[in-house]
């Protein structure tokens, strides 16, 4: 926990005395090292790549049930539907392959991505919507349905490949990264919890019937089929749920806040393998 506390203390210092930041500047590489190092120190028994399995690294988490449920994974229909969507031609004859590098195959680990043209963070869902709009189609909701199906298919083609989120040395990218980091560590809602309260400080501990997944690797299994949802949902759907659960008002699915949060949080798992779609209660 010590390194985590150091990180928290540093953050507190940053937010309290912003002037002190002058010249220091965000250092994503150092953050990633400290973040992953914290978990490796606190939970040394868990191999780094296994963090993508979230709660199932801990006893009493229902690992056997998870294994049984994923024997024929409940997201199988979503992958199938996503493949059909991916291969169906737009009215102009193009497909999603025209919008992505490598034809959209095996590239999920590169998202969220900083877009130098707009100066904003683009999640895979936002990139899909951009592609749709560029080809004369309407945006989809970012949380579930066809969007989640398509993200599931594009993610399954990326399975096993490392997460590789790049924060370029561009002040706008660094600002987005820093905003995501601040969001992650800021307390909010009636319960006054930050993302880190549950997923760093209490990672692996129980919250009633559930075991809390460590923040390290947590994005790797998205999109998720949750038994509670009875359907597949994206990372932003989970952000909304987490915010509601701590009694705070969720941000908009397409908001800069959630894009930046996804940017920071996914970058913290750089090097871990993509494992999505995943299955959770």
């Amino acid at each position: 926990m010590r390194i985590g506390l150091v990180v928290l203390a540093l953050l507190a210092a940053f937010s309290a005395v912003p002037v002190a930041l002058a010249g220091a500047g965000p250092d994503p590489a150092a953050d990633i090292k400290a973040f992953q190092g914290h978990f490796r120190t606190e939970l040394p028994a868990i191999p780094l790549a296994a963090y993508v399995n979230g709660p199932y690294n801990f006893p009493g988490s229902g690992r056997a049930q998870w294994k049984q449920i994923t024997e024929f994974p409940p997201y199988s229909f979503a992958i199938d539907s996503g493949k059909v969507l991916f291969e169906t031609k737009f009215p102009n004859g193009k497909t999603y392959t025209s919008c992505f590098s490598e034809g959209g195959i095996g590239i999920a680990g590169n998202y969220p991505m900083f877009d130098p043209k707009t100066g904003r963070v683009v999640t895979l869902g936002v990139a899909i919507n951009r592609c749709r709009v560029a080809n004369g189609l309407k945006k989809w909701p970012l949380t579930k349905g066809k969007m989640a199906d398509l993200v599931a298919y594009m993610t399954v083609t990326s399975r096993g490949r490392p997460i590789d989120v790049v924060v370029p040395n561009d002040p706008r990218a660094l600002a987005a990264y820093e905003a995501g980091k601040e969001y992650f560590y800021s307390r909010r809602g009636q319960l006054n919890f930050s993302c880190a309260s549950c997923h760093v400080q209490a990672a692996g501990k129980r919250l009633r019937g559930n075991v809390l997944a460590p923040a390290l690797g947590i994005t790797a299994s998205f999109p998720l089929y949750r038994s509670k949802w009875g359907s597949i949902g994206t990372l932003v759907r989970r952000f909304i749920g987490c915010n509601k659960k701590v009694g705070s008002v969720p941000d908009k699915p397409d908001s800069a806040a959630y894009r930046d949060l996804a940017y920071f949080l996914t970058a913290m798992s750089n090097g871990l393998p993509i494992a999505g779609p995943g299955s959770r209660p």
């Binding site: 229902g62 049930q65 049984q68 559930n210 209660p281």
Partner: peptide
């Protein structure tokens, strides 16, 4: 069957 169900909506039973 599990001793504690992760989610009562989906309980694997063999």
């Amino acid at each position: 069957a599990p001793r504690i169900a992760e989610n009562g909506a989906v309980v694997p039973v063999i």
